[in-house]
C-alpha cells in the first residue's frame, strides 16, 4: 500500500515540472489568447468585449482564404513528402542495419540553423546557383530555370529538408516498437510483403505515423519565413497576416482570431488524416477484424 502511494507520488513528481511548465507557458496563455480573440483593439490598446467581429472580418476576407490555402498546401505537400521519404529510411535503419550511422548522418543536418538552410537553398536553386549553373554548363538548358526559386517548389523542398530529421526520429522510434518477431510471425502465416506492411507494421506504428505527419504538417503550414524568403510573390501564408496584426497593426484580437481559425483548419486536417488511415485500414483496431 505504502509502496503504491510512494510510486504514485514519484510519478506525480516526475510529471509535475513539465505539466506546470506547459500549464503556465502554453495552456493558460492559449486560453487567454482565445479570450482575447473576442476583444477589440485600437492602436495597440486592448478593449475587453465579447464580439465575433474579428472572426467574421477574417472569414469575409478572400485574402485570408488564399493565404490559408497556401499554408495548407505547403503543410500537406511537405508532410506527405517528408513521411514518404523518411518511412523507408526508418524501415531500413530499424530492420536492415545494426548500427545507427545512417540515422546520425541524417540527423546531422540539425546542426545548422534554420535560416542558414533557407539561404543555402537560395544559393543552390538561384538563377546563378548550383543547379542552374551545372545544367547550363552541360548544355541542357540555355536560360536559368526560374521555376526552381521563388516558387512553391522551393518552399516545399526546403521545408522537406528541414522537417525530414524530425519525421525520421519519430518513425524510427515507432518502428522500434514493432518487433521483428511480429513481422516474422506474419510471414510464417503466409502474409505477403505488402500485407506485412499494411496489416502489421503500419497499424502498429500508427501513432508514430500520425505524429510524424501532423508534426511536419503543423510546423510547415504555420511557417511564414520560408515561404516569404523562397516562395516568391505568391508564396505568402497566413502566418504573415497573423504576425502583421501582432507586430505592425497592434491588433492582437484580430491576430488571435486568425490564429485560432488556422488552428481549426489544422484540426480538420488531423481528423481527415486519421479518418483516411481508418478507411485504408491502417489504423489499429482494424487489423484484427478482417
Amino acid at each position: 500500500m505504502m509502496k503504491g502511494r510512494r510510486r504514485e507520488a514519484m510519478g506525480l513528481a516526475l510529471v509535475a515540472p513539465s505539466f506546470l511548465f506547459l500549464l503556465v507557458f502554453f495552456i493558460v496563455p492559449a486560453v487567454l489568447l482565445f479570450v482575447c480573440s473576442f476583444w477589440m483593439a485600437q492602436a495597440f490598446k486592448l478593449i475587453p468585449a465579447f464580439t465575433f467581429d474579428n472572426y467574421s472580418r477574417a472569414l469575409s476576407a478572400s485574402g485570408f482564404y488564399l493565404l490559408t490555402w497556401n499554408a495548407l498546401k505547403n503543410g500537406l505537400c511537405t508532410a506527405v513528402l517528408t513521411v514518404g521519404l523518411s518511412f523507408p529510411a526508418a524501415y531500413f535503419i530499424v530492420y536492415r542495419t545494426r548500427g545507427n550511422l545512417l540515422f546520425y548522418l541524417i540527423l546531422v543536418s540539425w546542426f545548422s540553423s534554420y535560416l542558414v538552410r533557407i539561404y543555402a537553398w537560395r544559393v543552390i536553386l538561384g538563377s546563378n546557383g548550383l543547379i542552374n549553373t551545372t545544367l547550363m554548363q552541360l548544355g541542357l538548358i540555355s536560360q536559368p530555370l526560374e521555376v526552381l526559386l521563388f516558387s512553391p517548389f522551393a518552399t516545399i523542398l526546403t521545408l522537406t529538408h528541414i522537417m525530414l530529421p524530425f519525421a525520421l526520429l519519430l518513425l524510427v522510434s515507432a518502428l522500434r516498437d514493432v518487433k521483428k518477431e511480429y513481422v516474422e510471425a506474419a510471414r510464417d502465416l503466409g502474409a505477403s510483403n505488402t500485407e506485412v506492411l499494411t496489416r502489421v507494421i503500419l497499424p502498429m506504428c500508427y501513432k508514430g505515423l500520425v505524429g510524424a505527419f501532423m508534426f511536419t504538417f503543423v510546423i510547415s503550414a504555420g511557417d511564414f519565413v520560408t515561404p516569404q524568403l523562397l516562395g516568391g510573390r505568391d508564396g505568402m501564408t497566413t502566418g504573415i497576416l497573423i504576425a502583421n496584426q501582432f507586430r505592425t497593426a497592434g491588433n492582437w484580437p484580430f491576430g488571435a482570431a486568425m490564429a485560432f481559425l488556422l488552428l481549426a483548419a489544422f484540426l480538420i486536417v488531423y481528423l481527415g488524416f486519421v479518418r483516411l488511415l481508418d478507411l485504408l485500414r491502417l489504423a489499429p483496431g482494424r487489423r484484427f477484424h478482417d
Binding site: V24, P29, L32, K45, I47, P48
Partner: peptide, 22 residues
C-alpha cells in the same frame, strides 16, 4: 483590473496572463 478597466495595453494583458498562469 480586467473587470473594471475598459482599455488594456498589450503589456497589461500579458502581465495579467502571466500572473494568472504563474
Amino acid at each position: 483590473n480586467l473587470l473594471r478597466n475598459d482599455v488594456l495595453s498589450r503589456r497589461d494583458f500579458l502581465g495579467t496572463s502571466l500572473a494568472l498562469g504563474a
